[in-house]
């Protein structure tokens, strides 16, 4: 008891000291978090109800007018269509291809590492540079894509309607064609992103125990498909939740390719006018901060909603 009593003041002192140091250690991070992440969210929220523009000293409250415009004007309708088309196309394809590649590579041992390396290259490469490379590939007359397609002219492959039309008249302009532009953007998105999903799935696959497959076989799972359905897919549940969320968030943020291909206006007939580009064009280039902020707020709502669903799924440990 004696010892305890003599110690108590010291312990209390040590605890307040630790308390204070702890705050000193967290303070810089806390301040920056508030200043750089939280304050801007609040500012965007406030400005989205005003007609503010940089250079003006004052602004007027305009109520929900900016949001009204987002949901009534045809330009923004195109923006939502382009964004969702992109997300809904790129996410399933890049997740599916990532999973497929991971399963194939996982089943073939060391030699599969070569493919892993190759598929991961686009993840590392500067997207803007690769976008410019793709632009040359897709050049209507001297691009590699149309040149390759032309080689099929006069061969049996011409029974495919697409090639037949192309040979008879001309092959698509790709980036200049409003029917193709958004799909080309989607394609590049998948091309760039599926390698990332693949390595996440490969990491997930290493945690699937071999015994589980034997157990499933005992239970009558004969085909590879049954093994996949009963063992692999459920075991990959948490990975899938994560991969889908992060793919969605990345897909929402598509910008580099679109700005590189169409510096003005978001593609033929605004068919690739995605949200990030709209924020950039309206808010920064045209100084229409109110409308830009409204898009920012909607964007944040989408992204936060997605992440919250992910956390909810992870916490419930859902294995679907």
């Amino acid at each position: 008891m004696d010892i305890d009593e003599t110690h108590t003041p010291n312990v209390v002192y040590a605890e307040t000291a630790q308390h204070r140091t702890a705050w000193w250690l967290t303070a810089p991070a806390l301040c920056l978090m508030i200043l750089i992440l939280l304050v801007p969210v609040v500012i965007a929220g406030i400005l989205s109800f005003t007609d503010y523009s940089l250079g003006n000293d004052t602004f007027n409250w305009v109520g929900a007018k900016n949001y009204d415009r987002l949901f009534s004007s045809s330009t923004y309708e195109k923006m939502f269509i382009a964004t969702f088309t992109y997300v809904v196309t790129v996410v399933p394809l890049s997740v599916g291809l990532g999973l497929g590649a991971a399963l194939l590579i996982n089943s073939m041992g060391r030699i599969g590492d070569i493919y892993k390396t190759i598929y991961f290259l686009p993840v590392m490469a500067t997207l803007l540079a690769m976008a410019i490379a793709w632009e040359f590939m897709l050049h209507p007359s001297i691009g590699m894509v149309n040149r390759t397609l032309e080689m099929s002219c006069g061969t049996v492959l011409e029974f495919i309607p697409f090639l037949k039309n192309g040979c008879a008249e001309r092959f698509p302009l790709w980036l200049g064609d409003r029917d193709y532009a958004i799909w080309v953007i989607c394609f590049i998105g998948v091309w760039q992103g599926f390698g990332f999903n693949m390595v996440l799935y490969l990491a997930g696959l290493t945690s699937v125990h071999r015994e589980l497959y034997h157990a499933a076989e005992m239970d009558g799972a004969k085909s590879a498909w049954e093994g996949f359905r009963l063992v692999t897919w459920p075991a990959l549940g948490p990975t899938t939740v994560f991969v889908v969320t992060i793919s969605c968030i990345r897909a929402f943020q598509v910008f580099d390719t679109i700005e590189a291909f169409w510096p003005q206006g978001g593609g033929p007939n605004k068919s690739t006018y995605v949200m990030m580009f709209a924020i950039f064009e309206k808010g920064i280039q045209q100084n229409l901060i109110g409308i830009g902020s409204a898009i920012t707020v909607l964007f944040l709502v989408f992204v936060m909603f997605l992440t919250l669903i992910q956390r909810w799924l992870v916490e419930r440990k859902v294995h679907y």
Binding site: L38, A44, I279
Partner: peptide, 19 residues
Amino acid sequence: IVLFCLLIPVHAIALPLYI
């Protein structure tokens, strides 16, 4: 606060940061 901030992509708040 850290967990909440994980939800915010910096690119998304580029406009207010720029202002």
